[in-house]
Every structure is written in C-alpha cells, then in structure tokens.
Amino acid sequence: MVAMVNIPETVTAGTVVEVKILISHPMETGFRTGPDGTLVPRNIIPEFRCLYGGEEVFRAEIFPAVAANPFLSFFLRAEQTAEVELLWTDEAGQEHSEARLLTVQ
C-alpha cells in the first residue's frame, strides 16, 4: 500500500500546519459487481487517525462514499518538535502507518 504524505518539515511554534495524504487503495464499496457477476467484497479503510506527539489530534470515520485512492487534508497546530503519525487499517486487515518529524522552532 503506497501512501504519499505532504507536511512541512520545519515551522514556527503556533503555526497551523496542513497535512495532506494520498493512499493507494481501491476502497471497494461492497456494492460493485466484478467481471464474474458476483459482488466484490467490501474493503475500505474505515478509520484514519493522526497522532501528534503520541496524542490524537484528528480522526476520520470513513464510509464507502469516500473515493478510491483516498485523499485527505486536515490541520494541526504545531506546538513542539514531535512525530506526526498517520495510522489506518483496511477491512482486509492490512495495517499501515507513516511518521514524519515536525520540527518546531
């Protein structure tokens, strides 16, 4: 599962930082029929979390109406130099996490 994370590396304290992420995932809705005419089993990423310094700052509950190869952008207030962790697991049990150090001056 490829993911692309876009977050500034260094900011001044108090800056509200935008986090952008693109995740390679089909987000199978469970409503679609495959080439053999049967329903393709649902497999979406039902939850996405962002931790900053180990504490949750943002979370999304996701439903099949979120597009394939999901894109998310959200914000966090930079307070101290700490790791920003992005975590998700799809319904097939594939876990993924990305971490970026956010340096605060």
């Binding site: 509200v16 930082v17 900053y52 504490e55 700052v57 943002f58 999304a60 979120v66 597009a67 999901p70 894109f71 998310l72 952008s73 959200f74 914000f75 966090l76 207030r77 307070e79």
Partner: peptide, 9 residues
C-alpha cells in the same frame, strides 16, 4: 490541537 476545523477529501 487541530488548530483549524477544516478538511478536504
């Protein structure tokens, strides 16, 4: 700590 209640998808 989100700083801003805004998101895009």
């Amino acid at each position: 700590r989100s700083g801003r209640a805004a998101a895009e998808t």
